[in-house]
Each structure stands twice: as structure tokens, then as C-alpha cells.
Design a protein around this nucleic acid. Structure first.
Lengths: 345, 345
DNA sequence: TGTTAGCACTCCAGCTCCGCGAGTGCTAAG
DNA sequence: CTTAGCACTCGCGGAGCTGGAGTGCTAACA
């Protein structure tokens, strides 16, 4: 069941040609490759075998072969020659990451645009979550008429805010008391712990210290809900799907674009709890509309913990090698940027 | 040069049929309309006249007529019968706006999705700017290593933040002094005024009060830059362009989608300093890719000042009447929501 | 003078037909 | 095991044909 070296050679040649040309590859075209020293007839025989084993398919008798999903999978698992990003992309990436930007959100957004223009595919970037960051300060700023803004700042400098409603006649003392309790108890606590065990303890503390218990509770609950904020999703180059010949069929393109629009669902395309590079080919994506697509993803980290994802969506016929290199480079560079950023230069 | 009532009747019939069917309208089809009591031959004569005057065109001899840009313009200016939103949309909208949401950003985002699903076109919503709001409080929260987060809260409860770099050895006193000066001078000032005349005055004040002048200036400049933040752009239903028959041509669709992706440029499609409803048909849009599109926009307000825009992008063949009603209703409802929101319930 | 029926004409859309070329599988020889 | 040769297959694109929808024009009618 294992492929002979020659079969592997032919399989990767087919895939690489097909990725470039987007058209079925014939034996004659393959014979022109430098590394392939056999006659078309020999290649035909091998291709017939590869087809029988399920690595190639024929759109119709007497046309060239195209890789099947199984073929791509084998290629990604066994034949991909690791390497470095190609020259053009390398320069582009270096250039990109030496630009000095210091808002995280902006960097992430620009990474998404950069990835899409570099790969000419659609990029998906999940902004860094702040689960591992710690509460630095909580503020409560009244804005009149029984309303206030609760603000939470993390040690990395992220700011989240939420609106809180009070009873109309709450006293300034009470507001201060609430803030004090919250800061006493919560500063230094990782965001990921905010919700869980602390809630009960805090509620109890607040009930002792603060007169307006319900109001205090409102604040507490808003603050804790910050944890539940969804990761922000940035999608770059969605229009690129239309430039892929496989999506010239408007129906398909539309179903993919619609999917991309519902930012929420996109999150689920990324494997949870997996940090390395992941390649989902065709039906390996559980979502129906992605049957002809490959989603390649990886993570980026802060202090050794993965905090976000970057990924590229394209047709199964994508340049696996190149995109893989680009993703890995970007992941590393983004990790480095975040580290620099959160330690202050 | 003025159109006779009968010509107007026929023009609007052509437009309404064409909007519905997306196919050239012939004299026979028109003759079946209830309001039109003439024979196809008469209609043909009138249509020939309308074509000569430039309100209709023929894709080719011996096919039905389609409205020209001039035709649409006349229709929008003179023939549109004002009315109310249709039943389905009305119910939908009422339902939508009775949902209780209290984050402005969320409302705006949802309005964008709602508009696109209701009109089956692409919606564009510019989030409310805060120029008319006033500074409520400025905070400066150190997060270690010569860095701090500057936070600005407006009286309406908007929160903006920016990162600031300090000299490593700045003293806590200095930070406090800076914040005090800023709050003294800026609380109550409208955001729109932040930049202009105050900057010089403040710099002078800071130079007197604060030891670390450069640091203070850094904060001041960051805070003032909040003014320049671009309005957030929400785009809903971009995939809908693909369902319009006129954009089955992949090239066109792609150029429009690419445009939509660069959020920034979209801002310029909205007329500055105009508050009512605006309709830009075809070439009236300065952007090349929108030659076959109509962009219909209006504003929403807070305290009588327009603070944001909502709009719908579709093919010139769009249901002007319906979309206009929907936009006007939404604008009013959004204005009302904002008022309620910013006065607290 | 305005309206309408009738008719010849135009042109597109969709169909079939056909030939070309790219590519295959098989066979037999090296 | 490899390769040259050959007959065969099949999609693609162009040519030619047809039906139908729609027009403009003319002549008759109110």
C-alpha cells in the first residue's frame, strides 16, 4: 500500500503542476519535468496505478489527472519539502514586521490584510484573547442618570468596558466602596479566573461592605462578563475567493462568502487546544460549504501560551508549501511582536 | 421636454417591472398591467419616444426596454410614491427595534445585518462619531516599564483608549499631576474641540505644572488623537452582491467586494454635511466600480446633530421605493434609540 | 388627430452537428 | 521493466439552424 519513490515523485509533480495551472495534468506535460526521466507511457502506467489507489482522479476518460483529496493529504503528510519562505514573500514579510506599530489591534488587522495579499487567498485571524493576562485596574465612571461605565485594564494594557445601570439615588461613597472592593480582590487575578470561583466570594464581600448590594452585584456581573467577549475575527481578502477558478461558480462562492460574514461561526474552524500547524483538506472541514476548500491554520503565542490563531482559506488546490511557510513565519513574528509589546519594547 | 402623464405612467411601469424581473420589458407585458389601458402598439410608440429622450434603452433592436440611468433618476425624483414600509418589513423592523440592547456598538452592528437581510442588498453603516459628545473623564493607568494606558470617557459613555510611553523613571506624582491638569481643563469640552485651540493652552499649562514635560506632552497628544479615530464601518451582506444577476459577472462582483473590504474608502461614499436621504445612481457615484450600482444613504442623529450614516448598496436596478422606506424608518428608529440610550433609558 | 390591428423584419437564445486536439489504454517490441 | 505506436475517447469551440419575443411601420378606424 506504500507508494514507491517514483510514484511519490509523480504524485507531487501532478500536484505542483495542478496547483499552478488549475488544469488536469497529462502524462506528456509531466514528462517534460526535469526530475522525471521516464517516457509518457511509463508515467501513464504509474498514474493509472495512482488513480486505482485513490490518489488521483480523472474528470473524464481521456483527460489529464487531478489530485484527489487523499492525494493532497498524502502530499501534505509525506511529500512537502520543508523550506523557507520564497524570496519575494520573505522580503515582504521582513519589511512588514519591521514597521513599528504599537496597537495590538492594529497589528492583528494588518496581519490579516498582509496574509491575504501575500497568499492571494482569504485570511482569517483571531485576535489575541486575554485569558492569561491579569487584572491591572478596575474603574467605575458615572455618566449621570444612574449609569456608569465599568472599565477593566489588564497588565498587558488591554482595555475593556461595559455599561452598568444603578439605582438613581446611589451615593458616591457607595460607588467608591464598590470599586475599592473590586480592585482589592481582583487586581492580579488572571482574566480566565474572573468568572469561576471568585464570584461567590466577592458577592459576599460586597454584601458586607456596600449598602447598595444589588448595584454592586450589577457591576460585578458586568465586569466578569468581560471574560465571555468573543475573540475578534479579522477576515482579509474575502474577495480573493472569486479569483480562484474553482469558485467562478457563483453559488459556491456565495456560500463561502456568507459563511465568512458570520464572524462567529468562523471561530469554530480553528482547532481548539492544538498549537502547531493544522491543515484541513476538503471534507476534513466539517462545514459543508468548505468541501472544496482547504483551511490551514496555526497559532501565535504570548509567554508560551497560544493566545490567537491565524489561518488561510483557499481551494484544495492551494500552494501548500508556500502558504505553510508564510503561516509559520507569520506566527513566529507575531509571537515575537506580542512579547516585545507586552514587555514594553 | 416634460413627460406627459402617460409617459410617466409607462416609465414607472417599465422600471417597476424591470426591478422585479431583471429582464427587458416589452410592450405586451406592459399592456397587461391594470393601470395601463392602451394597446401594445400605443405603448410601443410611447416607449420609442421615451427612448429618444434618453429615459429608456434597448439592449439590442427588438428586445424590450430597460431604464437608463436618466430614467431611474427621473423616477426617483418625480415618480416615487412616498409611502410606508411594506407589511413584512414593517413587522420585522418593529420587532427589531423593540429588542432591548444597550451597547451602542452592538446595535449598530446588528442594524447593519438587519438592513442587509431585509433589503437583500449590501448594507453599510458608519458607527456614530462622538464629535458632539463631551469629555467626562480622563484616566492614565500605568502598566509598568514606562508604559501607561490613557483612557477617555465621554458623557455618553463611549470609551476610547491609547497607549503612552513614558521615560522609565517618571514619578507617580507626575502622572497624577498630568491627569489632574487634563481633567481640569478638558472635562466638559466637546470632542470636536479637543484638537484645535486647546492644545497650545494645555501644553503651556502642563509645562508649568509638570516636571516631566515631554511625557506630559506625549499623553496630551495621544488623548487628542482620539479625535482622529475613523468612524467604524460595518458592512452587512456583502455576499448579497453575488445574488444579483447583474453581478454574475465575476469580475464586476470582485471589484465591488474588494472596494467594500477597504473599509476606509467606503466612508467617502457618504455625502458629507447632508442629512436627508441621498440617492446616487450609477455614474453619479464617483468610484468607477460603482457605475452599475446605486448607493442610497441617510443619516441618524443625536440631539439634532447627524452622528452617523446608514446606507444600502445595490445594482441600479434596485427597489428604490422599498429601500427608501426602510432606510427612513431605520434612521428614525436609530435616532430614537440613541436618544433613549444617551439619556439613560 | 390619436389609437389600434396587422405584418414583415430583427435578433437573441438555445440546439445540434462536426472536427480538432489532448490525452488515454493497450499491445507488442526492445 | 520500459517504451514506441496506435486506435480510441471525450470535451471544447465554432458553424449553422430554428423558434420566439419584440420591434417599427403602415394603414384603417373612431
Amino acid at each position: 500500500m506504500m507508494l514507491t519513490p517514483r510514484q511519490q515523485l509523480i504524485l507531487s509533480a501532478v500536484i505542483e503542476d495542478y496547483v499552478r495551472m488549475a488544469e488536469p495534468v497529462g502524462s506528456r506535460a509531466l514528462a517534460k519535468h526535469e526530475e522525471i526521466q521516464f517516457s509518457p507511457a511509463t508515467i501513464r502506467n504509474e498514474m493509472a496505478d495512482l488513480e486505482e489507489m485513490g490518489y488521483l482522479t480523472q474528470p473524464h476518460t481521456s483527460s489529464g489527472r487531478i489530485p484527489s483529496q487523499k492525494g493532497y493529504r498524502f502530499y501534505v503528510d509525506n511529500l512537502l519539502r520543508q523550506g523557507h519562505v520564497d524570496r519575494g514573500a520573505g522580503a515582504f514579510l521582513k519589511d512588514f514586521f519591521t514597521k513599528r506599530i504599537d496597537e495590538v489591534e492594529q497589528v492583528v488587522r494588518e496581519v490579516s490584510m498582509m496574509l491575504s495579499s501575500l497568499t492571494r487567498q482569504t485570511s482569517i485571524v483571531l485576535g489575541p484573547n486575554m485569558y492569561t493576562e491579569k487584572v491591572r485596574k478596575i474603574e467605575l465612571i458615572p455618566i449621570g442618570a444612574g449609569r456608569a461605565v465599568a472599565i477593566l485594564v489588564t497588565d498587558a494594557g488591554h482595555v475593556e468596558n461595559a455599561h452598568v445601570h444603578f439605582s438613581e439615588d446611589i451615593r458616591v461613597d457607595d460607588v467608591e466602596a464598590i470599586v475599592n472592593v473590586l480592585n482589592d480582590k481582583l487586581v492580579g487575578v488572571p482574566i480566565s479566573k474572573l468568572r469561576s470561583n471568585l464570584y461567590a466570594e466577592l458577592a459576599e464581600e460586597l454584601s458586607r461592605t456596600v449598602e447598595r448590594f444589588e448595584d454592586a452585584l450589577a457591576v460585578l456581573s458586568e465586569v466578569c462578563q468581560v471574560t465571555d467577549r468573543e475573540e475578534t475575527v479579522y477576515i482579509g481578502g474575502a474577495a480573493n475567493v472569486l479569483s480562484q477558478p474553482e469558485f467562478h461558480d457563483v453559488e459556491k462562492a456565495q456560500s463561502i462568502l456568507s459563511l465568512l460574514e458570520q464572524g462567529g461561526t468562523v471561530t469554530s474552524w480553528f482547532p481548539k487546544d492544538e498549537r502547531g500547524l493544522t491543515v484541513r483538506i476538503g471534507a476534513e472541514n466539517s462545514v459543508g460549504a468548505l468541501q472544496d476548500c482547504t483551511v490551514m491554520t496555526t497559532t501565535y503565542s504570548l509567554y508560551g501560551h497560544p493566545v490567537g490563531h491565524i489561518g488561510v482559506l483557499g481551494p484544495t488546490r492551494m500552494d501548500y508549501n508556500r502558504i505553510m511557510q508564510i503561516l509559520q513565519y507569520t506566527s513566529a513574528a507575531l509571537t515575537e511582536f506580542l512579547t516585545r509589546w507586552s514587555t514594553g519594547i
